[in-house]
Amino acid sequence: MTIRVVVADDQEMVRLGLSMILRGEDDIEVVAECDDGPSAVEAVRRLRPDVALLDIRMPRLDGLEAARLVAQDTRVVIVTTFGDDDLVDRALDVGVAGFVLKDAGPPILLAAVRAAAAGDALISPEVTVALLKRRGPTGRPATDPRLAGLSDRELDVVALVARGRTNAEIAADLSLSVATVKTHLVNASRRLGVRNRVEIAALAWSSGLVR
């Protein structure tokens, strides 16, 4: 199955570079390139791609507002830099499928797109550490009472999500099937009262579960 992607970034060099990497893969098709938020929203609604790769800072409509408008239509991966801390915090409320650094290599970009298309998510480990860690205390025992309702295996899965692992990587690390990992994530999300992997990771860092 070919993964159809809309790429949106107001910097032409970045946009062309992202598209070139994606077009080099047999299983990925770039169906549109956009230079601002409104054109990205229009392209997603018209073309119904599997994944929208959105720059976090774009003119007229930033990537997070665009993501909010199209989240029901496609999976969104945000492209960010370390200078975007405040906007990435807002993304926790939008429910994006993942974050990729602009200077990440092609393997990370491609893994994020494929994970999003498969209903999984990938958060660059650097983003997880630098941007989610500062949302609360670390380096001390977990204090969030919601974590007490998780089984030991669910805590293992949550901790690995917080470190940026995909479902396949978690399955390999814990010697589980991918289906079992997904079940643990669904159960953990319900018990924690969170909506997605990004919120799981934020809670794990802020509670001190991950150090």
Results as ranks from 00 to 15, higher is better:
residue 163 R to H: 11
residue 163 R to D: 04
residue 163 R to A: 05
residue 163 R to E: 14
residue 164 G to C: 10
residue 164 G to R: 04
residue 165 R to E: 11
residue 165 R to V: 04
residue 166 T to R: 11
residue 166 T to G: 04
residue 167 N to L: 02
residue 167 N to C: 11
residue 167 N to V: 13
residue 168 A to W: 08
residue 169 E to A: 14
residue 170 I to Q: 01
residue 170 I to Y: 04
residue 172 A to D: 13
residue 172 A to N: 10
residue 173 D to Q: 12
residue 173 D to G: 00
residue 174 L to F: 04
residue 175 S to K: 13
residue 175 S to R: 14
residue 175 S to C: 01
residue 176 L to Y: 08
residue 176 L to Q: 05
residue 176 L to H: 01
residue 176 L to S: 00
residue 177 S to F: 02
residue 177 S to P: 13
residue 177 S to D: 12
residue 177 S to I: 04
residue 177 S to K: 07
residue 177 S to Y: 02
residue 178 V to M: 06
residue 179 A to K: 14
residue 179 A to P: 00
residue 179 A to Y: 03
residue 179 A to M: 07
residue 180 T to C: 01
residue 180 T to G: 00
residue 181 V to M: 04
residue 182 K to Y: 01
residue 182 K to D: 11
residue 183 T to N: 12
residue 183 T to I: 10
residue 184 H to I: 03
residue 184 H to R: 01
residue 185 L to K: 13
residue 185 L to T: 08
residue 185 L to Q: 13
residue 186 V to T: 15
residue 186 V to A: 14
residue 186 V to F: 06
residue 186 V to Y: 08
residue 187 N to Q: 14
residue 187 N to M: 05
residue 189 S to W: 01
residue 189 S to R: 15
residue 189 S to F: 06
residue 189 S to Y: 09
residue 190 R to G: 10
residue 190 R to C: 00
residue 190 R to Q: 13
residue 190 R to S: 14
residue 190 R to T: 12
residue 191 R to S: 13
residue 192 L to P: 01
residue 192 L to N: 09
residue 192 L to I: 05
residue 194 V to T: 09
residue 194 V to F: 03
residue 194 V to C: 07
residue 195 R to Y: 01
residue 195 R to C: 01
residue 196 N to H: 15
residue 197 R to N: 12
residue 197 R to S: 12
residue 198 V to G: 12
residue 198 V to R: 08
residue 198 V to C: 05
residue 199 E to F: 02
residue 199 E to A: 10
residue 199 E to T: 03
residue 200 I to L: 15
residue 200 I to N: 02
residue 200 I to V: 15
residue 200 I to Q: 14
residue 200 I to Y: 00
residue 201 A to K: 07
residue 201 A to Y: 04
residue 201 A to H: 07
residue 202 A to I: 07
residue 202 A to P: 13
residue 202 A to N: 12
residue 202 A to Y: 09
residue 203 L to K: 12
residue 205 W to M: 06
residue 205 W to S: 03
residue 205 W to Y: 15
residue 206 S to A: 14
residue 206 S to E: 15
residue 206 S to R: 15
residue 207 S to T: 14
residue 207 S to H: 10
residue 208 G to E: 08
residue 209 L to M: 11
residue 209 L to A: 07
